[in-house]
Design a binder for these strands. Structure first.
Length: 581
RNA sequence: GCGCCCUUAGCUCAGUUGGAUAGAGCACGAGACUUCUAAUCUUGAGGCCGGUGGUUCGAAUCCACCAGGGCGCACCA
């Protein structure tokens, strides 16, 4: 079902290398069979001779020449020849290439799915504090995390998409206080609200309009009950209520972006269930917790610095720069301690592979969390990958769009979605490596031209569908006689299609969903090129009235193309369109 | 001061984990097309891959140092 042609033919290479140089099996791992960058080099190339040269003590070109002879005898290989410093370039027979089309058609959307790896991976993303609607800054992580999880799933991992709800810290207390002000206002007690706000330590933090309805709901539910009551009587109730409401808002935002999660894990519940103590105990048992005092940070000593004895975790034993506090000087747990618990909990749930998708401002957090995971794993093989998403600058008419709350422009994610649509937001966010800063051009995102990769890919799919509709949605294309497919543009397109499984595997391994977006863009380009060829030469058009055999062959190709585009868009979470309007 | 990320064509960015002559799109130059599958197409030019050393058959990719940009830097979340 996966049918990665490159993986299959690599076996041939390994067999022939073994025939040629028996016993040198330890180098097999570094032998690869890759698509050629340039079509004049054929369909595939292997570095086998280069890799083998040193252990075999022979000239790479000589090995390449002999390997080429062996490979050329294989059925399906039209030509194999040594090239450059010791590559072997392989050209497949057209028949062999064409045989892949029915494989795609039979597998459908599942083409490119990796074999089940039996490995559980936890992908945590968004995890925004439940204190308000999502803003643009959350967007990239949400999209990258969602697409990465989809990608890993397609590659054959058992993926769980997780949202870690930070509902235990000071920020949700601040939320409760902010909501309380709205509650008083809803009761018409504006003076009372002002008086309360004035004595909140640090001031009222969340002044957004989105809390107004929350205050109103509370007023309806509880009436005057909390109006004059001291904080301790309402804090828990209102905090819980507010967090639930904020999560509703966030879920709506995520839904608008077509981002989904399998589980929402509550920090509060984890803490209440003793998760932190359990996690720290594991570290304690390994002698990785001690009481000590940290040095002030070099070069930038805070004004109010004073040495304090704290409970510390020996992060330096696992590659971090300094040991990290797990308890504050007053004995309460640090946020880091809760995060250790969060990851320990995931490990307890059977995930030995975890991925955190975080914003760039959490970059300094990577080392300590990876250190903690290593420490928790002990002799186990748990691994945490952190995917950092750099800042996005939103551009309009060549100018950066201000994100200030006062200006009221594009603070909230919803505004961005309303402006360009969820599909465009997702695709464009995925057109960049996540660890590089990017510009999001609003003009390009809605343009109906090649500048806009979403449009370009969608247009290719719509063209495929349009052709198939015009042909009356033929069935049985997988059994079509394909020998009529001989045009260079057609073969180029097929080569692109069969590269899909390999791309899925590589992109998943690298945790780089953006590669899928680029692949689709290139695939769309190849398809449009074929379409355009038909414009100059009517004989290359897909539907040939008097030639049912040619037509069926071409429709098979078109159908396979649409399948792969759908498959790729599915990974990105973008809906394929049937027609352009 | 320390750590992490980034630096590739005029602009926005890829570069398949170290491979062959570093690629796209936009913008720019030249040509085609008069709506036929046109929400255009073909084609050209454009590069010291930030710099300097190193590792090896081979480096944009790995290592060291330097320069520039971003993010973070006791107990906050």
């Amino acid at each position: 079902m996966g049918s990665n042609l490159f993986a299959e033919l690599r076996v041939w290479v390994l067999q022939d290398v073994e025939t040629l140089l028996p016993g040198l099996t330890q180098m097999h791992a570094s032998i690869e069979l890759t698509p050629t960058r340039d079509a004049v080099h054929g369909d595939m190339a292997t570095n086998a001779a280069l890799v083998a040269a040193k252990p075999a003590g022979r000239n790479p070109r000589e090995i390449a020449a002999r390997l080429a002879e062996l490979l050329a005898k294989r059925e399906g290989i039209a030509k194999a020849e040594p090239a450059g410093p010791g590559f072997v370039n392989i050209t497949l027979t057209p028949e062999f290439l064409l045989r892949q089309l029915p494989v795609i058609l039979d597998a459908g959307i599942a083409y490119g799915n990796g074999a089940a790896k039996g490995q559980k991976i936890n992908v945590e993303y968004v995890s925004a504090n439940p204190t308000g609607p999502l803003h643009v800054g959350h967007c990239r992580g949400a999209v990258v995390g969602d697409a990465l999880a989809n990608l890993l799933q397609k590659a054959g991992y058992d993926v769980t998409k997780e949202y870690y709800v930070n509902d235990a810290g000071a920020q949700v207390v601040a939320l409760a206080r902010s909501v309380y002000v709205r509650y008083l206002q809803a009761l018409g007690r504006n003076l009372h609200a002002e008086a309360y706000a004035a004595q909140v330590p640090g001031g009222v933090q969340y002044g957004g309009e989105y809390l107004v309805p929350v205050g109103q709901s509370l007023a309806e539910l509880y009436g005057e009950m909390f109006a004059t009551a001291p904080e301790e009587q309402w804090l828990d109730t209102i905090r819980e209520f507010a967090v639930a409401k904020m999560l509703e808002l966030i879920r709506e935002d995520l839904a608008a972006l077509h981002v989904t999660h399998d589980v929402f894990t509550s920090e509060r519940e984890l803490v209440a269930a003793g998760g932190v103590e359990r996690a720290l105990q594991i570290l304690q048992d390994r002698g990785l917790i001690y009481e000590g005092t940290l040095e002030p940070p070099k070069g930038k000593t805070p004004e109010d610095w004073e040495p304090r004895e704290q409970t510390l975790f020996r992060a330096t034993q696992f590659g971090d720069d300094v040991d990290r506090p797990v308890k504050k000087s007053d004995g309460s747990n640090t946020y880091f301690a809760n995060d250790i618990a969060c990851h320990a909990d995931k490990m307890a749930r059977g995930f030995n592979a975890m991925i955190d998708v975080l914003g760039a401002d959490h970059g300094g957090y990577t080392k300590r969390m990876q250190a903690a995971v290593k420490a928790l794993a002990g002799n186990g093989d748990a691994r945490l990958d952190v995917v950092l998403c750099q800042i996005v600058r939103v551009m309009k008419n060549g100018e950066p769009v201000r994100m200030s709350k006062r200006a009221g422009t594009f603070v909230e994610l919803r505004d961005l979605i309303d402006e360009v649509g969820a599909d465009a937001v997702r695709f464009i966010m995925l057109m960049r490596k996540s660890d590089a800063q990017m510009e999001f051009d609003l003009n390009a995102a809605v343009a109906q031209t090649r500048d806009n990769p979403v449009f370009y890919v969608q247009y290719a799919h719509a063209r495929c569908r349009s052709v198939l509709r015009a042909a009356g949605e033929p069935s049985g294309l997988a059994a079509a006689d394909l020998s009529a497919l001989t045009a260079p543009e057609e073969l180029t397109l097929i080569r692109k299609l069969i590269a899909w499984p390999r791309l899925v595997e590589a992109a998943a391994l690298a945790r780089e969903p953006h590669r899928v977006a680029f692949f689709l863009y290139e695939l769309a380009g190849d398809f449009h090129a074929l379409w355009n060829a038909g414009r100059d030469d009517a004989a290359l058009r897909f539907i040939q009235a008097e030639k049912p055999i040619e037509t069926a062959a071409r429709l098979a190709l078109v159908s396979a193309t649409s399948v792969i585009i759908r498959s790729g868009l599915g990974v990105l979470g973008v809906k394929p369109v049937e027609e352009m309007r």
